[in-house]
Simulated assay, not measured.
Amino acid sequence: MAEVSLDFQFKSSINKVWDSLTDSDSLAKWIMENDFKPVVGHKCQFRNPQWNLIVECEVLVVDEPNKLSYTWVGGPIDTIVTWTLKEEDGTTYLHLEQTGFEKEDQAYNGAKYGWGGMVDELKKVLGEM
């Protein structure tokens, strides 16, 4: 099994970063259109009509503002995305783990590089670029 593990830092407060991970309108600005709700057991979709892409999700963990986890299933990918947040000295540290890849293949590399690009968009949403 392979996993994507990435770390990011923001000047924004932990609550502002948490909101950008859990608010459907904010998520639409940096990931995809969605009907996400931060409620354990909630089933939702992330949709990108341009790529004809639908990702099915189910919320697994909501520990505001420290941890959020949900399934991320679409095409050949059947994974779990977990965000862990920590705030120290005015910096919010965001750790992403996406687990469940069978090997380091195209889907794995797409996720690894895709999240980096999406987090650049998140920085714009947070007003940090």
Score class of each variant (00 low, 15 high):
Phe46Cys: 04
Phe10Cys: 03
Asp89Gln: 06
Asp23Thr: 11
Lys124Asn: 00
Trp83Leu: 03
Asp78Trp: 09
Glu64Phe: 09
Gly117Pro: 01
Val39Cys: 11
Glu87Val: 10
Val40His: 09
Thr99Gln: 08
His42Trp: 10
Lys124Tyr: 01
Leu21Cys: 05
Ile77Val: 11
Lys123Thr: 11
Ile14Trp: 11
Tyr93Gln: 02
Leu60Gly: 13
Val119His: 00
Lys16Pro: 10
Lys16Ile: 05
Glu102Pro: 01
Thr22Tyr: 02
Gln45Lys: 10
Ile14Phe: 10
Trp83His: 09
Gly41Ile: 09
Asn15Gln: 13
Val55Gly: 07
Asp63Phe: 08
Val55His: 06
Leu27Lys: 00
Gly90Asp: 10
Lys86Glu: 15
Ser12Pro: 07
Glu58Leu: 06
Phe46Met: 13
Trp115Cys: 05
Val73Glu: 09
Gly90Val: 02
Glu56Arg: 12
Thr82Cys: 13
Val39Ile: 15
Lys123Pro: 10
Val17Trp: 01
Gly41Thr: 08
Val17Ser: 00
Asn48Ser: 15
Lys67Trp: 12
Ser26Cys: 10
Glu33Tyr: 04
Asp120Val: 08
Ser12Cys: 02
Trp51Asn: 14
Ile77Arg: 05
Asp25Lys: 13
Lys112Leu: 05
Phe101Val: 08
Glu58Ala: 08
Pro76His: 08
Trp115Gln: 03
Lys11Ala: 15
Lys37Asp: 11
Met1Gly: 05
Leu53Tyr: 14
Leu27Thr: 01
Glu3His: 00
Lys124Leu: 00
Thr92Ile: 08
Thr79Ser: 14
Glu102Val: 01
Asn34Thr: 01
Gly110His: 12
Lys43Glu: 15
Glu3Asp: 05
Glu64Thr: 03
Trp18Glu: 12
Gly41His: 05
Ala107Trp: 10
